[in-house]
Design a binder for these strands. Structure first.
Length: 306
DNA sequence: AGCGGTCAAGTTGAT
DNA sequence: ATCAACTTGACCGCT
C-alpha cells in the first residue's frame, strides 16, 4: 500500500503548532518563561493528537512533526528540560498518548530536522549543537513512536568525500535512539542520490529519495534505478519525497515548491510501492486530497487500457 | 483586528 | 553584499 504523508502543518484545517522567539522568552521572568514554554509544549501535544486524528480520518498515512514541537528546546539560552517545567511530566504523558493514538490509527510519524543540523560540518560547535538537536528529536520520537529522523548531507566544503567521511565518523558516536532513526536525503544543490547511496549502504543508513531534488540535481541514475536502490536501504517501510515546481519545469528556478502536485511528476514506478510518500506541497492536506484523486483516476485509465 | 519588523542555528549559488 | 532556498511564515508589539 502506498501511504501519502503530510508535512508539519495544515492549509485549512485549524490545527496550529504554536512557537515563540528566544528574545521574547528571555524577556520574561524565569517563572513566567517556564509557564509560557510549558503552555506551548502542552498546546503542541494537543495539536499533534488533533493532527493524527485528522490524518487517520482523511486517508493521510503519515505526518511529519515539526522541529519546534517543543519550542526552543535546545536553544543555548532559552532551552529547557521538559520534565522540569511546570506540569512537564503530564505533558510528556500527553506526547506518549499521541504515540498510542498514532499506533492505534496506524499513522506513521517522522521528523525532518532543519538545515542547521549537519553531520558533515568542519566546525565542532556546529556538530555539537546538531547532535543536541538530534538527541532532542529522538527523545520525542521515542515518546510518540516516530521511526525516522531525516536529514540532508549538508555542505560540500570543497570536498564532498571528506565531508561525507566526517559525517560517517559522527554517525558512530550518535546515541542508539538517534542512530536507529536517522536517514539521509538527497538535496537539490549538493548531494545527489549517486553521492549518498554508497554512503547509505556502507553505513546502513536508510536513504530518503526526494525525486524533486533529483530532478533539480540529476546524476547518472534514472528515477527507476534510484527508486530500486533506495528501497534496498530500508529495513522498514521506505520513505520518499515528492513535490512539483512552483513555476513549472521551464521556470527560472525549479526548486520552489508548488501548492499542489502535478500528477505527471509522480513517478510511474512508485504507483504500486509499499512506501510512504511525503507530499511537500504548500496546499498541504488539500494537495494530498487532490493527488489521491488524481492517482485514482490514473489507475482507472491504466486499467481500462488493458 | 490588522500590520510591520523581527526571528537560533549553515551552506550554497544567483543576483 | 544580499538574498532565497531548504520540511513550515509565525510571533510580538504597536496602532
Amino acid at each position: 500500500m502506498l501511504r501519502l504523508g503530510l508535512c508539519c502543518k495544515f492549509a485549512e484545517e485549524p490545527i496550529k503548532f504554536p512557537v515563540t522567539t528566544a528574545l521574547y522568552a528571555m524577556k520574561l521572568k524565569p517563572a513566567q518563561r517556564r509557564a509560557r514554554l510549558a503552555g506551548l509544549c502542552r498546546e503542541n501535544a494537543a495539536a499533534l493528537a488533533a493532527a493524527i486524528n485528522y490524518c487517520a480520518a482523511n486517508g493521510i498515512g503519515s505526518f511529519r512533526v515539526n522541529s519546534q514541537v517543543l519550542p526552543l528546546k535546545t536553544h543555548p539560552r532559552a532551552g529547557y528540560d521538559l520534565a522540569a517545567l511546570p506540569g512537564g511530566p503530564e505533558i510528556i504523558k500527553d506526547f506518549k498518548n499521541c504515540g498510542a493514538l498514532a499506533r492505534k490509527l496506524k499513522v506513521r510519524l517522522t521528523f525532518h530536522p532543519d538545515q542547521f543540523i549537519l553531520l558533515s560540518s568542519e566546525k565542532a560547535g556546529v556538530t555539537e549543537s546538531s547532535i543536541k538537536e538530534l538527541d532532542y528529536q529522538a527523545q520525542v520520537a521515542g515518546w510518540i513512536g516516530a521511526d525516522v529522523i531525516n536529514i540532508h548531507g549538508g555542505g560540500a566544503y570543497g570536498d564532498k568525500a571528506a565531508a561525507l567521511a566526517r559525517a560517517g565518523a559522527v554517525l558512530e558516536k550518535l546515541s542508539p535512539a538517534v542512530r536507529a532513526r536517522l536517514a539521509l536525503e538527497n538535496d537539490d544543490r549538493i548531494y545527489s542520490p549517486a553521492d549518498l547511496l554508497p554512503f547509505c549502504r556502507a553505513h546502513k543508513v536508510p536513504f530518503v529519495y526526494d525525486v524533486h531534488h533529483h530532478r533539480c540535481l540529476p546524476d547518472a541514475l534514472s528515477v527507476e534505478e534510484v527508486t530500486r536502490q533506495a528501497l534496498k536501504t530500508w529495513d522498514r517501510e521506505p520513505l520518499f519525497h515528492l513535490s512539483s515546481p512552483r513555476d513549472g519545469w521551464g521556470g527560472a528556478d525549479p526548486r520552489p515548491h508548488h501548492d499542489y502536485i502535478d500528477p505527471g511528476d509522480f513517478p510511474a514506478c512508485w504507483r504500486r510501492l509499499d512506501a510512504t510518500i511525503e507530499v511537500e506541497a504548500k496546499a498541504k492536506e488539500l494537495a494530498i486530497a487532490r493527488l489521491r484523486k488524481d492517482l485514482a483516476a490514473y489507475k482507472e485509465i491504466s486499467c481500462s487500457e488493458k
